[in-house]
Nucleic acid binder design. Structure first.
Lengths: 211, 211
DNA sequence: AAAACATTGTTAATTTATTAACAAACAATA
DNA sequence: TATTGTTTGTTAATAAATTAACAATGTTTT
């Protein structure tokens, strides 16, 4: 299958979670407009996304929830699960680690890393924290593919290059520092300050309409 | 001025921060390609964004850093600053609060809220935590416009409607629950699990090229 | 069983975002 | 002072994402 648009991948992840709650509510079928309502998007968008993954509904009375969950899994999940490490066990690192707990995903948080001896060897939400100096060894041993970067801004760049040189394949960057990585490494960035400033801007614009 | 595209607003926020560090490095002018390099985007993108905010460089030897910082401010900032509250003082709430410390932004985190008596009245990174029951009173008193929602998933919807009914104008939603708010309220959502799953997907795709 | 309705899958149209192309405005150099 | 080189601002082209339109398929109602 051709690689999907990023936006579609994001929505597939969200469809799957919405479908899980649908199932928990004892519904076995959903219509595109119901799924759309749960995510507050349009039904066309849903149908288009499902078209892209080639999912054909068997009946005309909605999608089979279980089947769709598993189809989405077969598209977006790595066949044998995918191991993730959290880099930086400050508040953000711990928050992210906690998010995974209980969530049914194909990803496993197998390790956390920090430089602070106070944090090393502690276990948070079932995840053990190692000294960052053990990265190389553990990256390989635990087959860690993706790193979630949650270190202080001034350590972002050096830590990122450590990740790269140790064979990480994808980085989710939560620092406010834009990173530069080789093309072969997939990089996704999220900047909290920027996104809150964006909210502030549009609030301001709404307040002074046509101002 | 016409309302800017969301993507442009995001970049303006990042230009400003990059410019601040440029200034700290004693550079008074920057070229579009330099600014672009800092954010790892193209120079055309930079020039286009600046065109949209109507910023004309005085000289042909780059943009005046100070002037550009203040121009960006005049566009994206609210004239008299904008007050923000963090809702939910768990790990994520504390992380976000910490992010603001020291950052030069036009936004002030003026309060945090939680239901946990253990957290109420504590001060984190200079921000005091109040009981959520005081929302109505403090929302008004402190003129809080934007809320950053960082509560557990099962409290997301009820807390959001509390925010709405108390007069909040913008919400940055960090829970994994899609929210439904009136049109007049600006809503931005960020789902950590989804974005990490996205990284995982593209890593997988890169691993098995044309697979 | 015919008519009316609901839902899907897909193509086409539209909108939004990015990238390319290039004339104009200097500055530096010969 | 002419020539060469840089950088900008903007228009045009391309690409990506969303939305609209609608035929096809089946279900429900009369």
């Amino acid at each position: 299958m051709k690689t999907l648009p990023g936006k579609t991948v994001e929505r597939l992840s969200q469809y799957r979670r919405a479908l899980a709650s649908t199932l928990a509510a004892n519904r076995n079928y959903v219509f595109s407009h119901e799924l759309a309502a749960m995510l507050h998007i349009t039904a066309v968008q849903v149908r288009r996304d499902l078209m892209l993954i080639g999912y054909g509904s068997v009946m005309r009375k909605g999608y089979d929830v279980r089947e769709l969950i598993s189809t989405i899994g077969s598209i977006i999940d790595a066949p044998s699960g995918l191991n993730v490490a959290i880099i930086g066990m400050g508040n953000l690192g711990r928050a992210i680690t906690g998010y995974f707990r209980g969530k049914r995903t194909n990803m496993n948080v197998v390790a956390a890393f920090d430089v602070d001896p106070q944090k090393v060897d502690k276990v948070v939400a079932g995840v053990r924290c190692y000294n960052i100096s053990q990265m190389r060894k553990l990256r390989e041993e635990l087959d860690i593919m993706v790193a979630v970067l949650a270190v202080p801004a001034d350590q972002a760049i050096s830590t990122a290059s450590l990740l790269v040189s140790n064979g990480i394949k994808g980085i989710m960057n939560f620092t406010t520092v834009p990173l530069n990585v080789p093309d072969a490494i997939y990089l996704e960035e999220f900047d909290m300050i920027t996104s809150i400033e964006k909210v502030a801007y549009f609030v301001k614009e709404n307040q002074q309409p046509e101002g």
